[in-house]
Amino acid sequence: MEGISLERRKFRLPISMVGLILFNVLLFIGLSILSPTFLTLRNMRSLMVRMSELAMLTFAQTLVLINGGMDLTVGSAMALSGTIAGMLFKVGAHPVIAVLGALVTGIVIGTLNGFLVVHLKIDSFIATVATNSILRSVVYLLLRGRVLSGFPKNYVLLGSVNLLGIPLLFVLVIVFAIILHFFLRKTALGRSVYAVGANINCAHISGIDTNFVKYFVFVASGLLSAIGGVFYTIRIGAMIPDAGLNSPLEVVTAALIGGASVKGGKGSIFGSLLGILAMYVLINGFNLLGFNPFWEVVLLGIVLITIVGQSSMKKVVKMSRASRRGRAA
């Protein structure tokens, strides 16, 4: 009997995740009722396309958060990779080369962050405050503060390609989510990412190469942000110097709502995906309903504090209950 209950447990979702799914579903239902345009194919497609690059950044941030760090360069890495791609296009490079250039940029950025965190032992938050400042400046310098356009038509058209009626970019997001999910659950390295975030000393003593894991996570974050940069240029057809300026904090919020913790060791890719989905559906809904879109920002702040606050309150309550039980006994 015990065996059965154990096997079944595999499929059980954490309560916070159920709450998040429920929240999204209610949001969908509510908005479909309130706004006739919400549940149209067109609106859904544009919603999916618009969230695609930020979803990639959220995945990047989630990996770093699980590992016990923070990466504030996801926005500027996205902007710089997109810029490099655009500049390669300008000199007539083949699209494959341009995209590769963007991806290499992301990897270089991730390696730089990894170096600062692993070898110079700088706290990842402050290290990426520094690199973010540098990268953003490099973007401004390369673009001279102006918008870079001139991406090839066929390239930009990818943004409106649909696969089985679903925008290609969003399909790619889902593909990446599945790959990353399996990476985190089904590989030794992925499990090590959690272990290092939960207790780096324990991971070290258990034979995990913690430095390599940290490096890997930052490089992966850079690479995913670069893919986000490619998505961005496909979607917009241009590169704006301020692209992704607020993204780092936005995606941290999304990941935390999705169950990650700034203390590391927790979080999931699909949780984060639901987090960013909730954010975009909210924005979209508020737009359609003619609300001031900034209500969404306020709401997000409140949701963030209450979700994280509620989970720590739960712990406090549990402890005081336990001690009260002790007294009664």
């Binding site: 959690y194 272990a195 939960a198 207790n199 000393n201 324990c202 991971a203 927790k266």
Partner: peptide, 12 residues
């Protein structure tokens, strides 16, 4: 400090 991932499962 070094032995456990306190918040993780027995299995992990």
């Amino acid at each position: 400090g070094e032995g456990l991932l306190l918040q993780a499962s027995i299995k992990e």
